[in-house]
Amino acid sequence: MALSRNVVLGVLGAVAVLLAMSLFTVHETQTAIRFQLGEIVQANYKPGLHWKWPLVNNVLKFDRRLQTLDTEPERFLTAEKKNVIVDSFAMWRIEDVRLFYTTVGGDPTQANVRLDQIVKDGLRSEFSKRTIQEVVSGDRDQIMETLGRLLKEQATFLGIASVDVRIKRIDLPPDVSNSVFSRMKAERLRVAKDFRSRGGEAAERIRADADRQSTVLLAEAYRDAERQRGEGDAQATEIYARAYGKDQDFYSFHRSLAAYRQSFSGRDDVLVLKPDSQLFRYFNKAQ
């Protein structure tokens, strides 16, 4: 009885061990390859519990989460044959684990080496087509878009899906920085001088136009004033003439009084005339 119990327990234990050796688990963050005597028989396992033949099959698991390729800053030549220091990174994950294993041996470090070479070749090609000003200020997004498309195409041959490529920083060596700064300063000074020249020209044009308008306005005002003065003088002369024509003696007497008033406006005024002068004709008549 005890012997049969031991046999049953031994059989159950062997079954448990065999079952444990026949099952394997793939987590949500993993993918796997199943080998049979060193040959790949199945790949790209989904997360869950899976079956294998014990002692015949073996399983390798790989992390299918996002991986980061953070490259060392590298020098590249621009179209002006000037050096720039570029720091970039890329994000990738395993897409085809069978191809990933056969091309890079399933080693993420080796995959980073291959991807790093693709990224540097792409950066070298793109920077050689552009000037420093273009790569620093204007064309960075276009460079990243082109580089991302290139890396995505090349990475598929490694069983890798490229998710993103970014340029973190573009620096200039000290000698190039000074040269670029001097050129930018000269350019800004040229633009400022051009603006000042245009402003001075516009100011002179406005000032000349204002002077012309002022001269025209003064001339028109003087003309109008002279015309009105002439019209006033003509009306006054006409009034005087009419008044003189109505009563010549009274008009002459009134004019003489005005002449007396103007001639003797002060106490010390002295006027030496002949007694029979026309100025005293009304005084002589009063006698």
Rank of each mutant, 00 (worst) to 15 (best):
F264A: 12
L3P: 00
S182C: 00
A161Y: 10
L77D: 04
T109R: 15
D63I: 06
S88Y: 00
D276H: 14
K46A: 10
V86G: 01
T215I: 06
V180C: 02
N284S: 15
V97R: 04
D269K: 10
D249N: 12
Q213Y: 06
G48T: 12
V165F: 02
G230F: 15
G199P: 03
G148Q: 10
E226S: 09
L69K: 05
T25Q: 08
Y244L: 14
D268S: 12
N58M: 01
R212H: 07
A258P: 08
F250R: 00
R98K: 09
R261Y: 06
V176P: 03
L69Q: 04
R261A: 14
M184W: 13
V272A: 07
Q30I: 11
V86R: 01
R169I: 00
Y240G: 01
G232R: 08
R196W: 10
E201A: 06
L60M: 10
Q278D: 11
R227S: 14
K168L: 02
E28S: 14
S125W: 08
T103N: 04
A219W: 03
T102C: 01
D141F: 05
H27I: 02
N284H: 11
P174W: 04
Q142E: 10
M1H: 14
D247Q: 10
A241K: 10
W53L: 14
D276M: 09
V191E: 12
R267S: 12
G13C: 13
L189N: 06
R124A: 07
M1R: 13
T131L: 02
Q154T: 05
A219R: 15
G232M: 14
K185P: 00
L218H: 08
A225H: 12
Q287P: 00
A14E: 01
A236V: 10
N178I: 00
V56G: 03
F280C: 08
T109C: 04
L69G: 05
D121T: 14
